[in-house]
Amino acid sequence: MSAVPRDPAALPRLGWTLAALVLLWPLLRLADFEPVRLLDEGNLRAMGHFIRGFLPMETSHDFMALLGKAMVETLAMATAGIALSLLLAVPLGLAMTRGLSVSRIGPGRRAWIGTLVRALVRALLAVLRGVPELVWALLFVRVFGLGASAGVLALGITYGGMLGKVYGEILESTDGRTARGLLEAGSGRVAALFYGLLPHAGGELVSYTVYRWECAVRASVVMGFVGAGGLGQLMDQSMKMLNGGEAASILLTFLLLVLAADGLSEFLRRRLA
């Protein structure tokens, strides 16, 4: 009777775990990460003071009207930004998906073209999302002036890069056998996508997109600080005037928006399941 051979993957697994730990430690040190300082008495008092300034919340009629208008503007900016980013992300994400590559099944002759295209698309997506949306916004504010259009464009570009990358990776990691079977039966790529990949990956794609929309709502705030309009601009003004009550109302609005996004995502997932 021979002994069971050892798991050949065990040693590499141990090695990678150790390497990750060894890398993590200096990174935490570099980032000055000392959670104990949160509990320091002086720091606690300072934080408490900061938070007390937020109460009571501002609920005056005028401000609520302003808030409502800013909220609609923010929602519009986030939604338009995501719509714009989809125009970039869908074709680029699909181009990256190896599971839809006919040349991978054969004929192998022109496979290098596909490989080259995928590498170029990957690089393009990295450039799009590598520049933070804030920087794009600063750039576009100079072109379009203060207002939402700079924010929409900035969101569209950065989020197009993020969505494209993640779409490609989600499609890549889903079960490709269905799509491959269809391609092997002479189906085109787009038909194979709709009949073979989306039934597996649809839910995940939708929930990631809704999550990104939620992020876009938050990001449009940061961009408001540079004059791109919406809740962010309002927040900027309130903070500059040291009006904590107004800031608190704005924050609560955010919370509601995030909850709404969560509910929408849950609803869509349930519909698709």
Partner: peptide
Amino acid sequence: LAGRLGQWPLWKSL
């Protein structure tokens, strides 16, 4: 119906 994807035009499949 996916059996005919190789024969149908794309608009019909979709």
